[in-house]
Design a binder for these strands. Structure first.
Lengths: 196, 196
DNA sequence: ACATTTCGATGATGACCATCATTTTATTCG
DNA sequence: CGAATAAAATGATGGTCATCATCGAAATGT
């Protein structure tokens, strides 16, 4: 049956949101169109009324995932951001977590259009950390470089910690060690910024 | 036809080596048994004479991948290791590169047995960096913590750089920035080690 | 109110996939 | 040498996948 124009848009949004979660949990290749549609509350057939291909959806879901993440980290201190990001809670809930950490490895095998969305997402994450790094000081030094390094270490930490077995000592050690090291990097960037 | 016992072992090794490369290039799910066997120079049927399941091969290929990597980094200075690891050459040749960076994201969806191999590989990488960090000094401080942070940042950098579009400015910026930051971390760890 | 459009459901398509049974062929072991 | 064995090839199985054609029904535009 047909459905109201607004309702159709809501349905479309729900498909994208469901995909954004499922992809982070199972990978781009781990989610079939039929399975996805069922999780969103539909049968498989309607999919191609909304998207030209699965690849299109992958691109949209990537944007959606980064948007969810960055809204949650908007306007928080860099220390708080790292405390939230490099945490067991984040590691153990990939479906609601960072797309870069969950799907960065999958992204390599995606077309340029999708990878372009990843670059935008990484750029946005970096900007958030950089903003959270800016202290009362003048910010002479390259805060962006510090932010980029912190983002790489944080995403790497979550990915590596997830790759370890459940309840592995190493998995937790990676998290704790990298959190502490990122805290140091934040402090160092700030003191350089004030001094500069 | 049947084949000499030694030849059969060589064939098996070749399948594992081919898998180790192909998996890093296309992901665990991106390589089918038939395709893999063909790349190794066989037809698909013989696969199950060598392995009980594809999952078994995934585990073995992971070990093989880390072994290849760690042999290449054995006995090198930490600076040199990072210079080799965080490089365009490494980023652009995933099939010969680090399994953690290429397959860490895929590992989450693998059984514990495979993840256990990943933990061993990460442990080995960390040990190599830690050893390369030890200077003439007494090594009072926690070099392992520094090494783990460096490994996380390095793997994260390669993963994120690969996720960006080809010829993207961000992709190269990630590499250069993280290499410089890892160099600083190495220097810092060493001076603390000497002072301690 | 009626014709048109379009959302969503049903079902089919052809291509892959992992896995296994069978056969052929050659080696290994007694 | 002969019997048992095992590696590799061939071919089939049942499952899943992305994509598409079709159709019913309801909302939209006139």
């Amino acid at each position: 049956m047909r459905v109201t124009k607004q309702k159709a848009q809501e349905n479309r949004d729900r498909i994208v949101a469901t995909a954004a979660s499922l992809f982070r949990e199972r990978g781009f290749d781990g989610v079939g169109v039929a399975d996805l549609m069922e999780q969103a509350g539909f049968t498989h057939g309607g999919f191609y009324n909304h998207f030209r291909s699965k690849e299109d959806l992958v691109g949209e879901a990537t944007i959606k995932g980064f948007k969810e993440l960055n809204e949650r980290y908007q306007d928080v201190d860099a220390m708080t951001a790292i405390d939230l990001y490099i945490s067991r809670e984040h590691r153990d809930a990939p479906a609601q977590g960072c797309p870069a950490a969950a799907l960065g490895g999958d992204a390599v095998r995606q077309p340029e259009s999708v990878r372009s969305n990843f670059a935008d997402g990484i750029e946005a994450m970096t900007a958030i950390i950089e903003k959270g790094l800016a202290s009362a000081g003048r910010g002479e030094t390259d805060l962006r470089a510090s932010a980029l390094g912190i983002v790489a270490q944080a995403a790497g930490a979550i990915m590596l910690s997830r790759a370890c077995p459940d309840d592995s000592a190493l998995a937790d050690e990676i998290l704790e060690t990298c959190r502490a090291q990122c805290f140091s990097l934040i402090e160092a960037a700030r003191s350089r910024s004030i001094a500069g």
